[in-house]
């Protein structure tokens, strides 16, 4: 299937790496605790070694590999009649949401996203919610207005 036109903000990479790093720190604290217990109880050292390896691999995955793959795959397009999303690292997903099915659009900003001037767009239909993560805030605002005005054009019952 052909690639869609729009990408999400390049700054998303930064944000994902930072949030990955935060998760990794938490994971390492837990791993360190477990290793300490292993040392005190003098359980076999190879369990500790495996845990440490898992910690390092996890860090590599969530800080380096996954964010860049994820960013590369994330594309979207807002057209007059529909919204199309395309994303996924292991499972590539393509989603179509017709404008007339859109019920409302929200923009959201967590603390990390706010720091980088980004926002998440949430498109809700009567039955589903779809997210476009990390779009420039100005663009997100604009898109929210575009989508809600396009969605208002034709409204049948649910």
């Amino acid at each position: 299937m052909e690639e869609l036109g729009k990408r999400i903000s390049k700054k998303a990479l930064r944000v994902w790496r930072i949030s990955g790093a935060i998760g990794t720190v938490v994971a390492w604290v837990i791993i360190a605790g477990v290793i300490a217990v292993i040392y005190i109880q003098s359980w076999p050292w190879w369990i500790a070694a495996i845990l440490a390896a898992v910690g390092i691999l996890e860090a590599l995955a969530v800080i380096v590999i996954i964010p860049s793959l994820r960013w590369k795959r994330w594309r979207y397009e807002v057209r007059e009649q529909e919204i199309e999303l395309q994303r996924g690292v292991l499972i590539v997903r393509h989603t179509l949401i017709p404008m007339i099915r859109v019920q409302h659009v929200d923009t959201e900003q967590g603390p990390l996203l706010r720091k980088y001037g980004l926002g998440t767009i949430k498109v809700s239909t009567a039955a589903t919610v779809h997210e476009i993560p990390a779009v420039e805030m100005g663009e997100a605002e604009e898109m929210r207005q575009v989508i809600s005005s396009l969605a208002r054009v034709a409204k049948e019952d649910v």
């Binding site: 292991l90 499972i91 989603t95 179509l96 007339i100 099915r101 239909t125 009567a126 589903t128 649910v158």
Partner: peptide, 27 residues
């Protein structure tokens, strides 16, 4: 006009074998 959204997804293996999963969501 009752389908709320439609999704097409392919895992790594499905891409190799030219297969896909289609999901339609209704209210």
């Amino acid at each position: 006009n009752r389908i709320q959204s439609l999704e097409l997804s392919r895992t790594w293996r499905q891409r190799q074998r030219e297969l896909a999963t289609v999901r339609a969501t209704i209210k």
